[in-house]
Design a protein around this nucleic acid. Structure first.
Lengths: 128, 128
DNA sequence: CTAAAACCTGACGCTGACGTCAGAGGCAAG
DNA sequence: CTTGCCTCTGACGTCAGCGTCAGGTTTTAG
């Protein structure tokens, strides 16, 4: 498939795909005229890249870890990096849960509310 | 307290605090000579700001939501924004858990490893 | 009193993951 | 053959949350 189709299927922009190639995250075979050709498997790969980006991993890290997350072959250093990143994600999860719970607490104190634009505060459930 | 002390106590840079003020996230009283003065409560406030930043909320959103997360007073629209952000954080947590689990799966297939620099793959537990 | 440390206001620099525009070539349809 | 969409390679623009430097004032320690 060509780049436009891959972009559509993976839900990213064409620019993003060319950027991934620039970062050595995604390879392509070139047609005689220079157009990029991708196998079907590229869709999953791109989505996995997106997921790791969303987890906060920068492209440098992805360059190192992406191959082994797909082949399952890894050196012991890479395994260390892998578990380290996993732990960092774990930590971020904890932080987010913490923040969400705190927001929930705040929301709970002002749950009972009047009409649009009205003011409300903790003791304002059925306003006088 | 002055800005340097606040920075130290809150664990952020002086520059960050001035930036927060620029973004109307953190107010200060000025001494006659123009130096910023903060109350003790500013430490908690700054840490809360940091936590919300870490949760992915941009400063524009913080400007709207920060006051009511501290006073408990909120309009119904703000309550909507508040729960919306909570839900977005929830979604991010789900994504991260998903990613972490996938990484865990990958790590599990290569857990038993040999010496530094050695190669390993799923069936390589007690290498020959 | 003086030197160091802390503070001030601009204002430009940085990083990362792209967006976007320019200018040119490819490719199937009518 | 030309219309129109897709693709190509640069290369500069963007945005956010600060870092950092310049050049000057204020506060503090000795």
């Amino acid at each position: 498939m060509r780049i436009g189709e891959l972009a559509a299927k993976a839900g990213v922009s064409v620019r993003a795909l060319r950027y991934y190639e620039e970062q050595n995250l995604l390879a392509s075979v070139r047609s005689p005229s220079g157009q990029r050709q991708y196998p079907d498997s590229a869709v999953d790969r791109v989505q996995w890249i997106q997921q790791l980006y969303a987890a906060g991993l920068p492209s440098r890290t992805l360059v190192e870890l992406l191959p082994c997350t797909l082949t399952g072959e890894v050196t012991i250093e890479l395994l260390g990096r892998l578990t380290a990143e996993r732990d960092r994600i774990d930590a971020r999860i904890s932080d987010l849960v913490n923040t969400r719970d705190r927001l929930d607490g705040i929301i709970a104190t002002v749950t009972t509310v009047g009409a649009t634009g009205r003011h409300c505060s903790p003791g304002n459930s059925t306003a006088s």
